[in-house]
Each structure stands twice: as C-alpha cells, then as structure tokens.
Design a protein around this nucleic acid. Structure first.
Lengths: 214, 214
DNA sequence: CTTTCTCGGATAGCGGAACTATCCAAGCAG
DNA sequence: CTGCTTGGATAGTTCCGCTATCCGAGAAAG
C-alpha cells in the first residue's frame, strides 16, 4: 500500500498524511527505494485512530503524539502503559494557585474524594492531570456563584463510577490483549462525545417531560 | 464602574474586554459622555460567564455570541429560551452523509432511542444538533472497528438520564427564576468538564482496584 | 487655565494550530 | 526515451483569540 492508497482508503488527503508523518503521529512506511514507501493495515488503523483523536476528540496534535508514544511503548506493562497514555491526554488550562477560588475548589474536591473513599485518587491527587482539570472546572463554577459542595456531588460520582465499571467490563470482553491500550484511549476520548451527547439528550428528554415542549 | 474597574474585578485585560464588546459578547456600558462608559454588576457577571464559556467550555466566540443572544431574548418563554440556547451550543463537525458508517450509526442511534422510549428525542432527532453529534461520534467509533450496538448502551443512557434528573432538580432548588436559563447554560457547559473529570477519576480508581497499580 | 493623564473606540498585527500548495529529484511504465 | 507518478521538503494559507498602537475627547492636578 503506497501513500496514495493509504489516502484513498482513509479519506485523508496525502498532504495531511504527510503532515502526520512529519509530526510523528504516524510511523514512517517501509522504504522500498528512494521514491516509494510501503504502508500496511497497521498504518491505516493508526491513521484512523489519529483522525478520531483529532477530529472527534479535539485532541491537539502535540498531545496526540505524546499519547500515541505511550501506546507504542512496548517496554511498559499494560497497566502502566494505559495509565501513561491516559495521563497524557487532558491538557486543560493550568489552575492559577493564586486564585482563592482554586484553593477552595481543591479543598472541596479532596473532601469529595474522601467522602467517596477513592483512596487511589486521593493519593495521586496532587499529580493527576485529571484531578487538576476537576479543580479548574469547579473553581470556574464557584467563581460564577454556583454552589458546588462535596455532598451533592457524591451521587454523581457514584454514577460515573458505575459508568467506568461498564467501560472496563466492555474493554475486557471485547478487546484482544494487544488492542486493549488502544481501546482504552479510544474509550477515554471517543466515548466522551457519546456520553456528552447522551447527557444532553437526557436533559432534553427530561426537561420536555417536566415542563412540556411549549 | 468603568472599563478599567471591570478589568480589575474580573482579571480580564481591558484589551480583551474591548474585544468582547466588539464581538457582541458583552452589552455596551451606559455611555456617560464621549470618553466614559459605566458598567455594573450585571456586566461583571456576564463577563465571568463569557470567560467560563470560552476558557473552560472551549466554546468558540461566535457560538458563545449566539448562545448568549438566546439567553437574553426576553421575548421567549423560559423553556423555549433554554432550548434555543442549548440548541446553539454544540457546533461539532457535520456528519458526512455519504459515509456508510454514518448511515449505520444513525440507524443504531435511532434504535437506542426507541429502546429507551425517549419519544421527544426521536421526534426532534433529525434536527437536534446533539443528535447529530452522537451520530458523528458513534460513526467514528465504528469506523475504528469498535462495536457499538444499541443494547449495551441502554444502561449507559439510563445512567445519564439519572444524571440529567439530578441536574434539573439542582437547577430548580438553587436558581432564581431569572437565573435559570443562564444556569442551564453554565450547567451544560461547565458541568461537562466536571463530569468528564469524575469519569476519568472513576476509571483510574476502578482500574487500580481491578489490576493494581503495578 | 493649562498641562498631563486617562479613557474608550478603531484598526492593524501577532502567534499558534492545522493544514495545504508548490517544488523537486528519483524512479517506473509504456 | 519520455512523460507521469511518487514521496520528501518547505513555504504559505486560514482561522481564531487575543494584543499593541494610535487617536481625539475629556477628567485631574497644579
């Protein structure tokens, strides 16, 4: 499969594929001679993942490179590899520690984790990018004057935990060992829009039931 | 309160505030004379909402303008206004109808809605931007080779419905009538990162429990 | 009253991100 | 041999969210 074929099968322009090659999102093809390189199914699959990350997941190219680097790092065990890949994902705004809303938010988030008994998250809390994202979001809500206390959030968290259990069950039953890390990344990134859409649809549905369509 | 004061209270530079005024995200202040304009608490509140939408919610400026336009449209009743505002939010990629994965995804999504008995969503389905986002996301997953059938998604959807119920309960108990529309927008946009972060934290927690930290 | 400072509006420019268009020399196909 | 295609390099384009600069009108200080 040559570059043009890769382009035809994926629907991505050759110029863009070249860009991804340059950026290291796609491993180079097997060089046959000075003007021809051979690509395989693996390249096609990776290309589709890249597109999904960037277009559906809105992941910046630099972040995608980092994530894929972890996915490919065969020197690591599965759990660590998965953790590293997910760890690299978020890339949200950094919390401004000088802002009192941020400090307050951090306290409240920690209280929530204690309430839930999520020991792992509490231990890793200060380091985890996900934890930081949560703090930033909570701080934004509070700055806007919306209350956000640990107690009312506990049931939300339990619901998301239920969702996470299903994610992992799904992963275990469907993915081959080799694909699990890739699948986890796809789940984290591509399931997000699905969940968000379901959430909004549920809001519309529930709102229509309660108040009518008018 | 003059522009400089608005800047000081919000932490947003005067240049950026001017930009928002130009873009119609912020209503102009009351003009005192040719060189001075007076702003009030409402402006400060709106400015914080704008910042939250753009920085935390990553909403494009043009979309934010549209959403806020609906929020401010006093000619509409609350339900309609809320619907219009939320309707304007997403702005995801358009589905490519020529793609067979998109067609298949649409069928599967409709089947899910039927399974759940979400009649409202089914009726509005072809029009709703949220529905389209869901189709796009599902199509991306399937193109990557991940199975996505209506049946296993039903429990996820029920969970999100439970989340939506809590959203609306929360909105009813906490917000004054005037703030409800604004709060709904904030909830849709700012709760998203919170939910996402909780989801990821739950994944980390659950994964650590099942497989250990290694 | 004059001088200096500050205000707000207009305009042009900047920097990053994701592509995209052009050029080029090497090869392969007829 | 000739003309078309290939993959790599490089520079350019577009969009977006600001940001820096200029300007004339007024407020503030002496």
């Amino acid at each position: 499969m040559r570059l043009a074929d890769l382009s035809r099968h994926s629907g991505v322009s050759t110029a863009t594929i070249k860009y991804y090659l340059r950026e290291g999102l796609l491993p180079p093809g097997r060089q046959i001679n000075a003007t021809t390189a051979e690509y395989d199914e693996g390249h096609l699959r990776r290309l589709r993942l890249v597109r999904a990350l960037i277009q559906v997941g809105k992941v910046p190219v630099a972040t995608a490179r980092e994530v894929l680097g972890h996915v490919d790092d065969e020197s690591l065990g599965r759990t660590v590899r998965l953790g590293a890949a997910l760890w690299a994902l978020p890339q949200d705004a950094e919390p401004d520690e000088a802002d009192p809303a941020v400090t307050a938010a951090r306290v409240e988030v920690d209280r929530l984790l204690e309430l839930l008994g999520w020991e792992t998250s509490r231990e890793l809390a200060p380091l985890s990018p996900v934890h930081r994202s949560l703090v930033v979001a909570v701080a934004a809500l509070r700055r806007l004057g919306y209350p956000w206390d640990a107690e009312p959030m506990a049931p939300y968290s339990e619901l998301m935990r239920e969702v996470a259990r299903r994610d992992l069950d799904f992963m275990e039953t469907h993915a081959s060992e080799a694909e699990k890390v890739e699948m986890a990344v796809a789940a984290a990134v591509l399931f997000q829009p699905v969940l968000r859409a379901l959430h909004r649809l549920a809001q519309e549905e529930e709102s229509a039931r309660r108040y009518g369509i008018e």
